[in-house]
Design a protein around this nucleic acid. Sequence first.
RNA 1: GCCGGGAUGGCGAAACUGGCAAACGCACGGGACUUAAAAUCCCGCGGCCGCAAGGCCUUGUGGGUUCAAUUCCCUCUCCCGGCACCA
Length: 804
Amino acid sequence: MIYGFKEVEEKWQKIWTEQKVFHAIHDPKRRKYYVLEMFPYPSGKIHMGHVRNYTIGDAYSRYKRMQGYNVLHPMGFDAFGQPAENAAIKNKTKPDIWTHKCIEWMKKELGRMGFSYDWEREVSTCDHNYYKWNQWIFLKMFEKGLAYKKGSNVNWCPSCETTLANEEVIDEGCWRCHTKVEQKDLEQWFLKITDYKEKLLDDLRQLKDWPQRVIAMQGNWIGKSQGVEIYFRLKESDKIIPVFTTRVDTIFGATYIVLAPEHPLVAEIIKGKPEEKEALKFIHKVSKESKAVRSSEDVKKEGVFTGCYCVNPVNSETIPVWIADYVLMEYGTGAIMAVPTHDQRDFLFAKEHNLPMKIVINQPGGPPGQAPDNMREAYEGDGVQINSGQFDGLPNQQAKLKIAEWMEKEGIGRIQTHWRLRDWLISRQRYWGTPIPVIYCSKCGVVPVPYADLPVKLPKEAPFTGEGGSPLSKVSEFVNTACPKCKSPARRETDTMATFFDSSWYFLRFSSPKFEAGPFSMEEAGYWMPVDQYIGGIEHAILHLLYSRFFTKFFKELGMVAFDEPFKKLLTQGMVLKDGEVMSKSRGNIVDPDSIIKNYGADTLRIYILFAAPPEVEMEWSERGIEGAYRFLNRVWRLLENKRSKKEPPEKLKKKMHQAIKEVTLDLESFKFNTAISEIMELVNEIYQDSDADITEAVKTTVLLISPFAPHFAEEMWQRLGNKDSIFKAGWPKYEERLLEESVVTMIIQVNGKLRCKIEVPAGIAEENLKEIVFSDEKLKPWIEGKPVKNLVIVPKKLVNIVI
RNA sequence: GCCGGGAUGGCGAAACUGGCAAACGCACGGGACUUAAAAUCCCGCGGCCGCAAGGCCUUGUGGGUUCAAUUCCCUCUCCCGGCACCA
């Protein structure tokens, strides 16, 4: 008998849909559980990555439902974005038509996998009922000064023809198309995420159930570094040059200072100096170098002397001011103090340009008072201060604090913190996104669109030529409008929002997807949120997860939510590989989930993908593995053929059954689907061993345990076992600890830590009796006979270790 | 360089708080059933020595703690990821 997956899967999918089995109802009396998987971009086809992500979430949410939780498990589409525009250009269609078609396709494919979504809560970010609230949120941020426009040097992807946020630049390339990113000076809209940097960093500590690496990545990205800003006064003009350092303990060793070539003071201080010409030449040369070239490590550090001197405020020494390409304007103050003896970069530069050096930290164990001339590299480690005035003799870590405090008191420095995180650039010069709800009036300036006028709808038509420039700017009916304040002719903003804006709060919308008085109902969000379990790819470790945390903190400030963090637990699932590589069109190694569903059924695919590896590690695709999963389901299916025996099931089967319930339950709690399934396999193997007895209970249990993983299969078997109602109403099986207790236990007998034999004894055996049995054991004789026992370790019910 | 993660049979992996290393599956070998094949069911399956009983070795490297280490501590190597001329 072979399991007819096709009919079975279609049958149950139809029943689930008709009976709205997965519809979540707001009910504060019940305990809720919110399981969410990152919603997909509707490309039209689901890939194995989606299958893995959504199977994990589905299995877990079905399990939680069976445990009696009121489960929210919604799905939607991150539907704005560039591929729709590209498709429009390529296929001569419109982005919204293309997108909606893709959504339909994808819904069908998701349906075929048997995922238990509440489709009544579906949201699509390109729907104006959704993006209206993007605009509303933007206006709120604008009111609070968190959304602002400024001209600056921004990342530009020449292929996508749009600006990018810092977070979207990966290895100097565009996150979407990998094209090398260029720098451009443009006026753009930013969100002041930096206002939340401290909370974003500190609250990472709350996220106990997030993967370590995601926490680490966000921490790195936010990049807090504590140090001191020191004021150097120019010798001839009294102008102050602030520099930032994290090594204030080395300040007495500063023998020159260096400005970035772009530093605003440079032009002023070199003016009229004999060095001016050389300096200008150098600055010009550096300005032509790309960021990538300039920051590559093997490039020699170059620089020129400015002709100026300044004063080291701690010891009044006069030191020269240089310009060099290894100092970056974007970080710190764009100027550094150079301590060649204790910073490797400064060391190399000083050697190259014959600049003076002074040791101020004594290397422990090293020759005391070593001359800088003998140094081969800078000493960056800890040690004791020397040549540092009143701080001599202090360990440098202590000196760091003392010097900083002293400098603050003297007014020559200030303790300061620098951050890597920059404000979030959200303007995109693209059509298929949320219009930024702002109007430019020649009289009134930048005017936000009044709330009552939302949504600012995207025009249905726009010219998609692929020739660059924002398509919206070419739609005159859209662009030309009246100023909301003075009614005179005005222009609309034609940039749209980055799509990461859309996805920064969709999890809140799911709580009340049709709410009309705001982005979400505070009452319903208050019940469902935060997301209890979030599941998605590691590629969003910074981007989406950081932005969502930022939005949540903003909503909290507005009093719209009561929590700090949107996602309580996070699981980042591993990628699905084929032949050791990521599946991709360009590699031509894609396995289409649909073909697997056709040949083996969705349940086989689900079981396979959960069984092959733990969810968070990458897994290698294996056709053999699929066959194994298929074989396993059929093996379970054949249990239906079993002739009903009246023979009492043996003790070991009952025990295995309860053990399986226990293990599967524990494994599910910690997302160890692979071992959960292996435990069910063991149970099935045991049932086969005892198939001459009455196995009804054991089979029932097997089907219940397998139901979160292979839901159609389980429903069908459940029905054939004589049950009328859906298995998902049956409740999660319970185990009895009592039945798991062994009356006879196998104990391991070790001699000097080495396994020598095993004995079976009653579980509650007294130590004295145990010793007696052990020491009279024939097999042990050769090992212990005639040797004095030095120690005897007894671990009850487990082992005895005889030390001789 | 800093931060985070990892390394276990031919392969994917398992081992709870330190207590039988390799569960479960894949691949492979053998047997049963069959005219035959497929499917299925049963058995074997880390390495070395041995007819066997059994013994010795084995969780990237070297060391330590412990009666006992895949697990804890230190050293090193390699792999993956993030940040980085970041001052």
